[in-house]
Amino acid sequence: MSATSASPIASGAPAEALRTLESRSMWQDAWHRLIRGSNGRIGLFVVTVILLIAIFAPIVDPYDASTDMNLSIARQPPSLQHIFGTDRIGRDVFRRVIHGTTYSLVVAMASIIVGSVLSTAVGMVAGYFGGLIDSVILRVMELMQAFPAIPLAIAIVAILGPGLMSTVLAITVVGIPGGMRVARAVTLSLQNLEYVESSRSLGASSTHILVRHIFPNLVSFVIVGATLGVGGVILTSAALGFLGLGAQPPAPEWGVMIADAVPFLRQSPYLALFPGLAIMVTVIGFNLLGDGLRDALDPTLSGVA
């Protein structure tokens, strides 16, 4: 469910997997491997479609949720005009599901990107400098990790008040420790590689070493972790929305749409069906792509988790 637990590489990677490859050929290899595997291919396709929808929906069909209402066609079953039917106040469910894609992906991307940047940076610093800094960071992370994701997110939202920003923040915070551990583990294993040491002995600054030598090796892990994390993030933000703690009305958010549909489950099940399917398909897409990417970027890890 959570971004943390979705990082399968958290257990640390074998050092021999971290050989630096000539980067272009590595990415080319990876690409070939990605589209060769059926997981990766399907995932890539689904995610591409979803991304296209998320990006182009607002451009092709500008949608203003605040004026969308037509009580005269409230709660109509799916038809040719409204293929997913209409909701409680006569909004086209298909249109809202489509625009909900943008909303969900904005939340997911924002929290994944911010989370990845933060966790990678912190993990690199911890792993590179070691000693006191490392211990302090590790203890803090341990504490953060001791709070289960959804309860922690709910508590954060209770403090900040519900809404888009608090959702992003809550999910970001919840996901940091997992990513941080991966970054730290990889950094640790790279520390003593020859070229890092030689670069250090040549007087390169820590920043230089971290950015030029360590970070490039981390990229593939970050990408795989982030992709696999998206699914969890979307599920968590939908759960927050469903509980009324996430997106606020009239935003077309999938979890909120399901919550709004609950009283009508028997009479108009489609109201809850389509947003739920949208969540599922999106999460499946990202999970498949994540699996594919993991296999592609790091063959030694394939088959694990």
Binding site: M1, G231, L235, A238, A239, F242, G255, I258, V262, L265, R266, P269, A272, G276, I279, M280, V283, I284, N287, L288
Partner: peptide, 23 residues
């Protein structure tokens, strides 16, 4: 397995309640 891990748990709960208990 993939569906299980990708399905919102609150949604699954609703579906099962309406299927097995209400209907």
């Amino acid at each position: 397995a993939l569906t299980g891990v990708s399905m919102p748990i609150f949604w699954l709960a609703l579906i099962l309640i309406y299927l097995f208990a209400v209907n």
